[in-house]
Design a protein around this nucleic acid. Sequence first.
DNA 1: GTGTTTGCAAATTGTTTGCAGTAAC
DNA 2: GTTACTGCAAACAATTTGCAAACAC
Lengths: 136, 136
Amino acid sequence: MSDLLERLRARGWRMTSQRRVVAEVLDGDHVHLTADEVHARAVARLPEISRATVYNALGELVSLGEVIEVSTDGRAKRYDPNAHRPHQHLVCSRCGTIRDVQPAGDPLTDLPTDQRFGFTVSAVEVTYRGVCPSCA
Amino acid sequence: MSDLLERLRARGWRMTSQRRVVAEVLDGDHVHLTADEVHARAVARLPEISRATVYNALGELVSLGEVIEVSTDGRAKRYDPNAHRPHQHLVCSRCGTIRDVQPAGDPLTDLPTDQRFGFTVSAVEVTYRGVCPSCA
DNA sequence: GTGTTTGCAAATTGTTTGCAGTAAC
DNA sequence: GTTACTGCAAACAATTTGCAAACAC
């Protein structure tokens, strides 16, 4: 746990109390919070932190590649700190719960060359949809 | 082409000039328009059509299963009328171009049972990301 | 000290809603 | 004739932006 902060520090990310709190809130496994949820949890530790600051920090974490932006559904984007290990998402259509799951093989190689139309394919995003046990 | 309208009529979808125009605009291959783009093209044929009506029609087409909602990126959702044939998307990270591509196998079966955590998995959404030939 | 980050509040964007009028079946 | 659809304008939700004050390095 908490390698996120260490990694960020190692990469020379300018550290402020706000940014630290955002990184702390976001760290862990199976974490998929919306910007607003991150803000709510950050406020619990640092009452004066603003939404804009949370958005700033999240945006930077995403462009640093330390956090992945997941557009699971209609509404708000979710932020997934598990960027270092390739994984996919299993989403419950009823309650919205998200689980990280491991690929069977490498989904990137599943796209045949003749289906790449000259694109240089560098990433793949896979979302399984279904109904979770507690909603069934 | 234009099976969409026929299918809708066959299914007893109440037809109005507005709905017809939306369906016509949306029909075709490799079509991935935002609600706003649909509205713009609809206005060209039917100047007084409102955004709300376009949203209504799109929402119904989605729940009828005739059109798929694609959250390709940050901004607006895109609507894909190619719902009758299973396919995946190849998105250019630079210009945003989307191509429909065909699965190598059935991506649904790629998720091992021990990775389903009791979920009943019914659909999978795959998005390949890369750079298209003209942007490279 | 210098330059980046923060907080605030207002602006933008995308989408939904309430309701009276209108049109499809 | 009923019932569902439309347009309008206003409400809403998520996110971004501009700028002066505050802080990390």
